[in-house]
Nucleic acid binder design. Sequence first.
DNA 1: GCCCCCGGGTTGACGTATCAACTCGGAGGT
DNA 2: ACCTCCGAGTTGATACGTCAACCCGGGGGC
Lengths: 155, 155
Amino acid sequence: MGNGIDDGDRAVWDAFFAMQMDFWRHLSRILQTETGLSEPDYAILLALRDAPGGRLRAYQLSEVTDFEKSRLHHHLRRMSVRGLLTRESEADDPRAAVAAITPEGTAAITAAVPKREEHIRRWLLDALDDGQKAALTDISEAVLRGLKDKTASAE
Amino acid sequence: MGNGIDDGDRAVWDAFFAMQMDFWRHLSRILQTETGLSEPDYAILLALRDAPGGRLRAYQLSEVTDFEKSRLHHHLRRMSVRGLLTRESEADDPRAAVAAITPEGTAAITAAVPKREEHIRRWLLDALDDGQKAALTDISEAVLRGLKDKTASAE
DNA sequence: GCCCCCGGGTTGACGTATCAACTCGGAGGT
DNA sequence: ACCTCCGAGTTGATACGTCAACCCGGGGGC
């Protein structure tokens, strides 16, 4: 422990780091300019579009999108101001906070999905051959597995 | 064009997307809690540490860190309030805005680097075998190449 | 039945990122 | 010498993310 990272590993990190920055900057930028939606807008509208009745309780939306409850709350407020969704409460459970997609929200996500898919294809998938795609999936799952274990392992 | 993404490609994207979110959330979180530095703090201090005299003009810092000038300006202001660096101007060029690392800034980055390297090793490199590391470098460079071409290609 | 705890939700404060508009002092062309 | 343009830097507005603290209405243990 305490010793550094060797040159080979550093090259991996540098490439990965640089790619991440540029890739996400570009993807969120073109999503915004072409659809008027931010990344969190897109994630939330997609979850609501796929939910029965276009409605989800806050904690369910939080599970699907993996947003912290506070982050989700703030974002839902901003989105409701823009008319993309409405915030309602259930009559039978006063604690429930339900988000419901509006026609404008539906229109926005319907228009955005094909563009988003083209972005993903063009800037990620088309840059990789089949072997690289398979490797990227494996790598992503391996890293994810390591992260999941952190809570399970002793600490 | 306009058709969707097939199931195999979607699996690549889903895994990649999930990994990104969790990985960066975790890395920036532990950096913050263990060192008191945010990701941009770390990037800026590292650049200044490696600069001659611990000083760099704003536009040079902008090139090294790839921060937009406005983002950089706001961040330097916050960091100077915290005492991590000072903002000076050159006598011979009134336009120059120079950032200079302070002893506190040097102490912070010196303490942070080994922790950061351990994070990178533990949460990324140790999760991958040699083949996966090589593949990740290739993939990152391929994606990066595609992004660089965007400005060069017709649009 | 009472009490305590817990989870869903809300709020405010603060740090961070992006965009657009603006200042200002040179450098170059004429 | 003048004028124009340009690039470095600054500013303010707005959106986004995180943390800590808090409210509030059940449920469960007893």
